[in-house]
C-alpha cells in the first residue's frame, strides 16, 4: 500500500490511506498514512458499524489538511473488544471423529454435510453474500479432491493455483458456516475453532507437511497453513 501511495503521488495524485502495521508505514514513509490499531484484515475496524467506519475515514481524510509530509498519524480509538463469553461457542459441535468412516473422503464428506445447513443459513442472513467460489469449483468437488490427495497419498503438483484457491474456498465455507448466526466473535476465536476443531484443518495441516517436504513446493505449504494455526493446535492439544 505504501508503494502505491508513493508512486501515485509522484504522478501528481494525492493519496491518503490506512496502515495496519505502524512500523511498516514509518519506515517507508508514504505521503499520508493513518495507523489504526485493528486486526489484520479489518482496516476499518468494526463490521457493520457505519459510525465507527466514518470516524476512521474522517481521520484519514483529515490528513489532506497537513501542510507538508510525509505524515503518519495514529487513530485514537481501539476497536471494541469482542465479548468472550461466546469464545469457542460454535453453532456446530465438532467432535472428531464425526463418523466411523475411515477414508478421508467419507470423513470430510460427513463433516461437510453437517456444515451445509449452517453455511446456507449464513448465506441467507448475508443476503446471498459469500466469499466462497474463487476456485470456480463446488464445495463438494473441492472436498472430494482434497480427500483424494490424502487417500491416495498424492500431492497437488499440476494445478497449484486451483489448489490454493480451493483450500481458501474450503476455509471460507467453514468459517461462513461457523459465523452463520450474527455475533461479534473475536476473529482470533474463530481461527481457533477452525484450526483446532475441524477435520478439514487436520487435512490441510497434513497436506502442508507433505508439500513442505516436496522439492519446489515448500512455498505452497507456507501459504496453506499459517504458523499461528500450528501454535493454536499445539496449545489446544496441550490443554486437552
Amino acid at each position: 500500500m505504501c508503494a502505491i501511495s508513493y508512486y501515485l503521488e509522484r504522478d501528481n495524485i494525492m493519496t491518503t490511506g490506512i496502515s495496519l502495521v505502524r512500523e511498516n508505514a514509518a519506515s517507508m514513509a508514504p505521503p499520508r498514512s493513518l495507523w489504526v490499531p485493528f486486526p489484520l484484515g479489518r482496516p476499518l475496524g468494526i463490521a457493520n458499524d457505519p459510525d465507527f467506519q466514518h470516524r476512521v475515514i474522517a481521520a484519514a481524510l483529515a490528513l489532506f489538511n497537513s501542510a507538508q509530509g510525509p505524515v503518519l498519524e495514529d487513530f485514537p480509538e481501539d476497536a471494541p473488544t469482542q465479548h468472550t463469553e461466546s469464545a469457542l461457542a460454535c453453532p456446530v459441535t465438532f467432535v472428531k471423529p464425526v463418523t466411523t468412516a475411515t477414508s478421508w473422503e467419507d470423513r470430510l464428506s460427513d463433516e461437510l454435510n453437517m456444515l451445509k445447513p449452517w453455511y446456507n443459513l449464513g448465506k441467507r442472513r448475508r443476503n446471498g453474500r459469500t466469499l466462497a467460489g474463487v476456485s470456480n469449483s463446488s464445495i463438494d468437488e473441492i472436498i472430494q479432491r482434497l480427500a483424494t490427495y490424502l487417500d491416495t497419498a498424492t500431492l497437488p503438483i499440476t494445478d497449484l493455483t486451483w489448489f490454493k484457491h480451493a483450500t481458501e474456498d474450503a476455509k471460507t465455507y467453514y468459517l461462513e458456516a461457523i459465523t452463520a448466526q450474527p455475533d461479534d466473535q473475536d476473529p482470533d476465536n474463530l481461527q481457533t475453532i477452525f484450526w483446532t476443531q475441524t477435520l478439514l484443518a487436520d487435512a490441510l495441516v497434513i497436506l502442508s507437511e507433505q508439500l513442505s517436504s516436496a522439492p519446489g513446493l515448500e512455498q505452497v505449504a507456507r501459504i496453506l497453513v499459517p504458523r499461528k494455526a500450528l501454535d493454536r493446535r499445539a496449545n489446544f492439544s496441550a490443554a486437552e
Binding site: P39, L40, G41, R42, A47, R126, R129, T130, L131, E168, T172, L175, E176, T179, Q185, P187, L190, Q191, I223, L224, V225, P226, K228, A229
Partner: peptide, 9 residues
C-alpha cells in the same frame, strides 16, 4: 493466510 477474512465476509 495471515489475516482475518470473516469480517470482510
Amino acid at each position: 493466510v495471515n489475516f482475518d477474512r470473516t469480517g470482510f465476509a
